[in-house]
């Protein structure tokens, strides 16, 4: 167990990325172990989302490595990258990005079904996760859920494939007040409850304060942020 904890699940080294000669990420390094959480903060336009896209493999860095679960994803083919993402990564987007025509259970079960899990098991697991995360009526139309419930459903969807690494992009950006606190508390409790690593990109200092470590992205470089 100790060995797993010590060995980072996510390891970023020498990551550089720029657009049109303008550097966005400069020689960026980062390590994140299972059961640990990191919050990346920074002003608008500092490259937080670009960093997240590099971790998802949606952009190819100019140089450097992004190692997830022991594999450098920058060297993977598109097919292998998709398979690796499916096996190890879960994502929560800012606006939940759920299909309003489907029920919450169906929304949560989608990644599992696409990954080949049997229908019964996928729906059972989805219902269990939703109950766990406090989404009240699993068969309520998704369009009828509150903002906080939709975001918790998105968290459940990210968790259903039991990913080692969970990425969250401004997960509370569309929420305020109690809903924001509930979702933030829930997210940062996940590494302990599910043994996964969590990286949250946020500009909300109050949300970032819940992380084990806080990093600030500025001028394309990551630095430890003041608590």
């Amino acid at each position: 167990m100790d060995d797993i904890v010590r060995r980072p699940l996510l390891e970023v080294a020498g990551l550089c990325y720029g657009v049109g000669g303008r550097p966005i990420l400069r020689d960026l390094g980062l390590g994140l172990a299972a059961g640990e959480s990191i919050a990346v903060t920074g002003p608008s336009g500092c490259g937080k989302t670009t960093l997240l896209m590099a971790l998802l493999g949606l952009v190819t860095p100019d140089s450097g490595t992004v190692t997830i679960a022991g594999t450098d994803i920058t060297r993977l083919s598109a097919r292998d990258l998709a398979a690796h993402r499916r096996a190890h990564l879960g994502v929560v987007f800012q606006f939940g990005e759920l299909l309003p025509e489907l029920s919450p259970v169906e929304n949560v079960a989608l990644p599992a079904l696409l990954g080949g899990t049997r229908a019964g098991r996928a729906y059972r697991e989805a219902a269990r996760l939703l109950a766990d995360l406090g989404v009240p009526a699993a068969e309520t139309p998704t369009g009828a859920l509150s903002g906080g419930e939709r975001q918790r459903t998105a968290v459940a969807r990210a968790l259903i494939t039991r990913p080692g690494l969970l990425l969250a992009d401004e997960p509370t950006g569309a929420l305020d007040g109690d809903a924001r606190d509930v979702v933030a508390d829930l997210l940062f409790a996940l590494p302990e409850r599910h043994g996964c690593a969590l990286l949250v990109v946020t500009h909300d200092e109050a949300v970032a304060a819940r992380a084990d470590r806080r990093l600030r992205l500025d001028q394309g470089r990551l630095a430890g942020a003041a608590a």
């Binding site: 990258l81 398979a83 993402r85 499916r86 990644p111």
Partner: peptide
């Protein structure tokens, strides 16, 4: 675009 997030996470574009 509604399906895109699921596509990104699952890596299955054939869907």
């Amino acid at each position: 675009p509604a399906l895109a997030p699921v596509g990104v996470q699952s890596g299955k574009q054939r869907i």
